[in-house]
Amino acid sequence: MRKLKFKNYKLSEKLFILFIHIFLLLFGVICIFPFFNVLARSLSPEFYIQQGQVWLWPIRLTVNAYVKIFQAMGIVSGFKNSTFVAIVGTAINLIMSFLIAYPLSRKRLPLRKTFIFIVVFTMLFPTGIIPMYLLVKKLGLMNSLWALIWPYAITTFNMIIIKNYFQTIPESLEESAFIDGAGELTILFKIFVPLSKPVISAIGLFYLIFNWNIFMPAVFFITHPSKYTIQVVLRDILTQHMLEDQLPFDQASLMSLAGPEAIQAAVTILAMIPILIIYPFIQKYFTRGMMIGSVKG
């Protein structure tokens, strides 16, 4: 196997590679700057942030904001609830997405175009929150964590990407499997899913993020504090530490409320951490060449 080596490149290629690196580095700096700013804020006393002094480095390092968050009520149950929704939810998301993406990706599926149409239609015409509220109530899901899972069991956008990838897998593969006596489910889970690891891990990541960050449905469908997800609990802590003389119930500023900024920054960092821990494990599936010679009929 011949390896690409930088020194074998022509000058124009070398210059281009150099350009790529500078470009990525610059863009990386733009992307990481807010993160460091938020991190520095989360580790500084409120006072210095209000004074506008905190940029990239904490002033008078303190973990006070984190301590306050961990002392708050409902953090443990919130974490438990969110973990449940994230794990069970993502599993259901993926399984259900496979079960529809696979048939839709196969030309031999009867009524295929109609089905795709039915599915794509739901992406363009979103479901209103009021009928969803009534539906969840009618199904008896109100105040249950399942209300955060079943109504969002499939994100059509994600499912389409999986379907699109499945489509690139040649039909000859399943034909030979059929001859070996395999059923549809076996083909799906034994051949298609393993062959699509990069895409599936990317979509799995997206689903995981969605489930972990789920907020508005939790506000609408969960009424008892013991079932709040972590995002609701964190938002609650934020409001607790909000500037008190926001006029009581100031309509104009509810959306943009920024609490004391250290807490808000700490909340951001904490909500980010679980995903950032998982990301590197998933990232290894995005490496070029990991699927060497996999798709061969």
């Binding site: 938002r235 309509q251 509810l254």
Partner: peptide
Amino acid sequence: LYSAYKEK
């Protein structure tokens, strides 16, 4: 939740 009242 105070900050979600307007939507809910």
